[in-house]
Amino acid sequence: MAQGSYVEKSYERDTRYINDRITADGSGQWPVEPGRYRLVVSRACPWASRLVITRRLLGLEDAISMGVCGPTHDADSWTFDLDPGGLDPVLKIPRIKDAYEKREPGYPRGITVPAIVEVSSGKVVTNDFAPMELDLITQWRDFQRTGAPDLYPEALRHDMDPLMRRIYTEVNNGVYRCGFAGTQEAYDDAYQRLFTALDWLTDHLRTRRYLMGEHITVADIRLFTTLVRFDPVYHGHFKANRSKLSEMDVLWAYARDLFWTPGFGDTVNFTHIKQHYYRVHRDINPTGVVPGGPDLANWAAPHGREALGGSPFGNGSAPGPIAPGERVAAADNPFSGPDGLLVYPGRS
């Protein structure tokens, strides 16, 4: 998760990333090469979840392995406490900070996920999450599965790019500006900007099934990872409380439509999401108590978005089975079946 801090007036995110790129033409230090890199994530983190969804939709599991950190971290680093012995089974390190230190001893900036690590050297290649996501789409095409959707169509980029910038500044980062506002004035401004953007998105999605029209794109992935966390954490913990997502009819139906699309909801770990925010952000929640709610049963309510037409994958197809080591347990997502795929209540 990207770092940030309170400032006198408003929350500022630290965006000083390692911004190397992995390219198909080998023009840089890091060429596309299956098996060379490991994607390190936490399912708690919305920025990392974008990479988890994108990798699954594109079928890049065999080309880029994935390590999953636990949902909490201290001021020093995310750790691999979910793995036997507390070590990542591929990188053989207990914390992602070790890979940052391999890249730059005494690494001075935030220790964040997602990060891509070169397996052989143990060095972080990049933690710049937005280019990482687009590079999985555009640079790793030769290793994507048959039927992988085009998540960043060239013909739509002129309109997509400003839309995604608005989603990032006003919604993805907007909830953080609410939660970490250091003054009433800063909070009021952040609150107004967030719900102005959500109202605009409501109007935008009222007559189109997905943000760019008939098929999912990376823009939908970017919005989904905030929406799926909205009621469990942002509404209460971050004081983004004008309305719950479940009270915003259009966005709520849109979020449920995506949730039940293979590759979206089957990557969501609600337990990790709540544990991270409520236990790590002690400046906001000093007791570290994690709330029991909300009841997640309403995610199974019919969304009715099929009436708008379109199809999630266009000329492509849904992603296949989930590898055993990457499945979310039913204890962490009540709709997760034994194979990790979502099971709609009442259906086998």
Results as ranks from 00 to 15, higher is better:
59 G>H: 05
63 A>K: 02
64 I>L: 12
65 S>Y: 10
65 S>E: 13
66 M>D: 10
69 C>H: 05
71 P>N: 06
71 P>D: 11
73 H>S: 10
75 A>D: 14
76 D>K: 14
77 S>V: 00
77 S>M: 03
78 W>P: 07
80 F>I: 03
83 D>K: 04
84 P>L: 00
86 G>F: 07
86 G>N: 02
92 K>N: 13
94 P>G: 09
97 K>T: 07
99 A>H: 14
99 A>F: 15
103 R>M: 14
105 P>V: 05
105 P>Q: 11
109 R>S: 08
109 R>D: 10
109 R>A: 09
111 I>D: 12
116 I>L: 11
116 I>R: 05
117 V>Y: 03
118 E>S: 02
122 G>F: 04
127 N>D: 15
133 E>W: 00
134 L>I: 08
137 I>L: 08
138 T>G: 05
138 T>F: 00
139 Q>N: 05
140 W>D: 02
141 R>H: 02
141 R>Y: 01
147 G>P: 04
147 G>T: 07
151 L>F: 13
152 Y>E: 03
155 A>W: 03
160 M>H: 04
161 D>I: 12
162 P>C: 06
164 M>V: 15
165 R>A: 12
170 E>R: 06
170 E>S: 09
171 V>N: 06
182 G>H: 07
182 G>I: 07
188 D>I: 02
188 D>T: 04
189 D>W: 03
